[in-house]
Design a binder for these strands. Structure first.
Lengths: 142, 142
DNA sequence: ATATTCCCGACAAAAAAAGTCAACAATAGT
DNA sequence: ACTATTGTTGACTTTTTTTGTCGGGAATAT
């Protein structure tokens, strides 16, 4: 039940951008340094976020990344899904219960119900937290 | 955010034993067949469960595995922890907040709070479901 | 005795995660 | 125009984890 670094770093990077929202483009380098992520690796991750339309980039001197939406319009859940794909503790949740290809014991599978509950509780949490929430928390900690 | 097959198979196997609770030792072979798990692999997993004291085994003809506790005394959460280790979406939750070795940005880390909430919601679910609950559900589905 | 079944440790294949690199393209400031 | 800066892309590599496999041994019921 681990989040990969993609998800973790993705949220950290987006949080960093949110903290600097409205201050123009933020360079990958500075984000990487503040969040302790390898520049080259973060490059990849920002590419994913850009293609998903969550950040826009500006090349060249003074360039960098900017959120495309306001921090209170972006949830942690969205970011995790972009970085890691659908939230599902087990793959069989991705198939329809009728689809017998995935799991022969399909519809009658009792344990499947457990994992569905786990998924729902996870999504409830991550979908309820926005980047703005995190920024507020950060202010209070100072 | 995936459970490994260790956790999934572990719960499936324990559920299978729970279904046959009170009927004497259940052979690994039969569990593997019903649950669709490789015998050799399940062997390993049962070893883990045995060492943790959740099942006892009997060798020889008519041998097999038995739960050491009643199904309503065993939660899904316990099984998952045995098979996969502590439930923690990110490793930094395993260290004390003061422990700066793990995460320099330690105590002030805002995203850490998010993952802690995720963990709590997961544990709330898995710790509230017992094998007996699953057996009851299974009966109703028939 | 014998067939059955669990036990143990080593090994291995496959997949996923994590990270690195180099050449290229765009932009700002001079 | 030139230069330094910064993002873009795709391929490649390394490491770790997952998911098994195998073989010989030990215990037990019949």
């Amino acid at each position: 039940m681990k989040l990969s670094t993609k998800g973790r770093y993705g949220v950290s990077a987006m949080f960093d951008l949110a903290l600097h929202y409205g201050q123009g483009p933020i360079s990958l380098k500075s984000v990487a340094q503040r969040q302790g992520i390898s520049e080259h690796y973060l490059e990849q991750l920002m590419g994913t976020l850009r293609k998903a339309g969550y950040v826009k980039s500006l090349r060249g001197s003074q360039g960098g990344y900017t959120l495309t939406k306001e921090p209170d319009k972006i949830t942690v859940g969205e970011i995790v899904r972009i970085m890691e794909g659908p939230i599902a503790p087990v793959d069989c949740l991705l198939a329809a219960p009728e689809d017998n290809e995935y799991c022969g014991r399909a519809g009658t599978c009792v344990t499947r119900g457990v994992w569905a509950k786990v998924r729902d509780s996870i999504t409830a949490v991550v979908d309820s937290i926005t980047l703005a929430d995190l920024c507020n928390e950060d202010k209070q900690k100072e």
